[in-house]
């Protein structure tokens, strides 16, 4: 009975089962993982990756990829801290500026891909490079400023006993998941990713959909950048780099196909949890950074193969 239920769970939501299994294994190896403080810590840290990966899901669902998220997070951190200057009265201006900049970046990415037909990997990688270069020019290599105390609450504080960052992430992710499942735009994104030509013939405004998806991806990366800025409080030119690979890993592990059209935000939530859990576990287990990189790479390969096999079995 239990075996049958476990089997069903694996088939329906393999990534959630993996999250649970990994946690059990990690807790056996290191009981420290079972401490409530550590659970809350994982939730708090997952929020940054979770938001960026939610945006990455939009890009991957259209059949593309957004490698500019690292640059967007760095840009957000630099702009937010330099505008806030540690003053609470500057929070709103800083957030608005970051969101507007992120939207502009996403729209440009989308236009390059949908209108000028530049390959997504090239367009977004170029944008990432541009954003890092602009951050260098803007700061002159010497970033200044800091985030405001009232703003830092969303990265460091607790609401109802839970990390505020995790609540922000889950509220946004659930909202995006709802949009993807219950709104026309969501269905169009899936349709474009599954077969762009067919979607166009059905009357879907594919170019607008792609531009919107990349704009959403960038805005969500901005939100992730704001959370990580609130967590650390300071500017750093390298702060976004970690999200370049991990955001893709989280989405792929969460079951979204690199070819587009298949996947879900709910899966990405689990994927982000899995990746953070794994990093935390390998930190506690004293695995070297090299080992952590190897594990991430292996994880992408295994996930792609596993989901393809599961997909083939379902189709049969």
């Amino acid at each position: 009975m239990i075996g049958a239920r476990a089997s069903t769970l694996f088939r329906r939501s393999p990534v959630w089962a993996a999250v649970v299994l990994l946690y059990i294994v990690a807790a056996i190896v290191s009981p420290a993982m079972l401490k409530p403080a550590q659970m809350l810590n994982i939730l708090q840290v997952t929020a940054f990756l979770g938001l960026v990966a939610t945006g990455q899901t939009m890009a991957l669902l259209t059949g593309g990829i957004d490698l500019s998220v690292a640059g967007v997070v760095t840009m957000t951190n630099i702009v937010a801290t330099s505008l806030m200057l540690g003053q609470n009265q500057n929070i709103a201006v800083a957030i608005i500026c970051c969101v507007l900049l992120g939207t502009a970046v996403g729209i440009i990415n989308g236009l390059l891909i949908a209108v000028l037909r530049v390959a997504p990997i090239i367009a977004t990688l170029a944008m990432n490079s541009i954003l890092f270069g602009l951050a260098l020019v803007y700061t002159g290599g010497a970033p200044h400023g800091s985030s405001a105390n009232a703003f830092n609450v969303i990265g460091q504080g607790r609401w109802f006993g839970l990390p505020a960052s995790a609540i922000c992430w889950l509220v946004v992710a659930i909202g995006v998941a709802y949009m993807m499942r219950r709104t026309t735009l969501g269905r169009w994104i899936y349709a474009v990713g599954a077969n762009e030509a067919a979607a166009r013939l059905m009357g879907v405004p594919t170019r607008i959909v792609v531009v919107t998806a990349y704009a959403l991806s960038s805005v969500l990366a901005v939100l992730g950048g704001l959370l990580v800025t609130a967590y650390v409080g300071n500017p750093s030119l390298g702060i976004g780099n970690q999200f370049l690979l991990t955001s893709v890993v989280a989405v792929v592990v969460g079951g979204t196909a690199l070819t587009g059209g298949i996947g879900s935000v709910a899966g990405t939530i689990a994927g982000a949890l899995f990746v953070t859990e794994l990093t935390s576990f390998t930190n506690i287990a004293q695995a070297s950074t090299g080992t952590q990189y190897v594990i991430q790479g292996v994880l992408i390969a295994i996930s792609v193969v596993a989901y393809r096999m599961l997909g083939a079995r379902t189709a049969a």
Binding site: V232, S236, Q242, S280, N283, I284, S288
Partner: peptide
């Protein structure tokens, strides 16, 4: 490794504090 970055060091240290 914490990459000489505050955010990385803070995340890694949080894990070590739990352990």
């Amino acid at each position: 490794d914490a990459s000489w970055q505050e955010d990385r060091a803070k995340v890694v240290m949080a894990d070590l504090l739990a352990a």
